[in-house]
Amino acid sequence: MTTLTTDPPRNGLSPLERAYARLGVVLITPTILVFLLVIVYPLLAALYLSVFQIYTPTLQGGFVGADNYIELLTGKAFWSSLRVTIVWTVGTLTLQIVAGVGIALLLHQNIWFRSLARSLVLFPYFLSTVVAVLVWKWLFNDLYGALNQGLMQLGIIDMPLDWLGSMPNAMIGVILVGAWKYFPFVVIAVLARLQTIPENLYEAARIDGAGPIARFWDVTLPQLRSILTVIILLRAIWDFKEFDLLYLLTGGGPVTSTQTLSLLVYQEAFGLNQMGQAAAYSVGMMLVMLVFMVLYIRQTKEKA
C-alpha cells in the first residue's frame, strides 16, 4: 500500500526531531566517554596484552604471539581451574536455588513477623563479602569455631574438622558460604513472582482435587519457570566470575583445589607476575562466559 512516488521533496526527519536526536546523543555522550575509558579501552588492552610476556613489577617484556594461548590450551592450569570453577558454580548455584525457592515458599506463607523474617533472610546478600568471610572464618575456626563446637555438642562429629585447609572440606565450605551469601537473591526474585500468581489458579487446582504437593508441581512451578531461567543464568554468570569470596576464604587453597578462573588470573598476574599470561587466561575465561551472557541477553531481549 506504500507508494514511494508520492514521496515528499522533504525527506527524513523534521528539524525538531533532529534536535531531539541531538539532545539524546548529548545526554548519552558522557556515559559513552566513561565507558570507552574504563571498559572498552581496558577490554581491548586485555586482548593486546595477552600476546605479550610482561613481568609485573617492572612492566617489561616482549611480544610472544600465541604462546600464552598455547600455554592456556596445553598447560594444566587453565583446565584445572575451569573444572574447579564449574564444580563451585554448579554446587553453590544448586544450593542457592533449592534454598532460595524453599525459603521463598515458606516466607510467602502467612507467618508471624513476616517482614522481620524477610529482612533477616535478605541481610547476607547485602553484606560485604569481607564481613561474611570474617564471620565464617571465625565459625569455621577449628578449635574454637562455633560450627565445630555446635556439631560436637549435637553429637554429629566427635573431633573438630579442618574446614578450609583440606579437601573436600574446603570446597564444601566455600560452596556453603557462597550459598548462604547469595541465596537471598533467589528468595527476593521468587517471592516477587509468587505474589503475582493469581489466587484463582490455586482455587481451580483445589477444586480439581489437587493436594498441596500437586499444587506446587502443577501451579507454582510452571509459573516460576521463566523467572527461574533468568535467575539461574544471572547467578551462574555471577558465581562463575566470583573472586572476593573464594580469594578471602581459601585463597584458592589448599594448593589450587579451590582456585577458580578469577583466582587463577589474579594469581598469574600479581602472584606469579606474569601479566601477559594472566590476560590470556582472562580472555579465555570471558569466552567461556560469553555462552551464558548471550543466553541471558537473548532471554532479556525476549522479555522486552
Binding site: 515528499p8 522533504r10 525538531l16
Partner: peptide, 22 residues
C-alpha cells in the same frame, strides 16, 4: 500535537504551518 512528525506534507493551524514547531 507535535508528538509525532509527518514524513511529508503540511499541517496548519490558522495561517501558521506548524510542522516544525515544538
Amino acid at each position: 500535537a507535535g508528538l509525532e512528525f509527518p514524513t511529508s506534507g503540511e499541517i496548519r493551524i490558522g495561517d501558521r504551518v506548524i510542522n516544525d514547531l515544538a
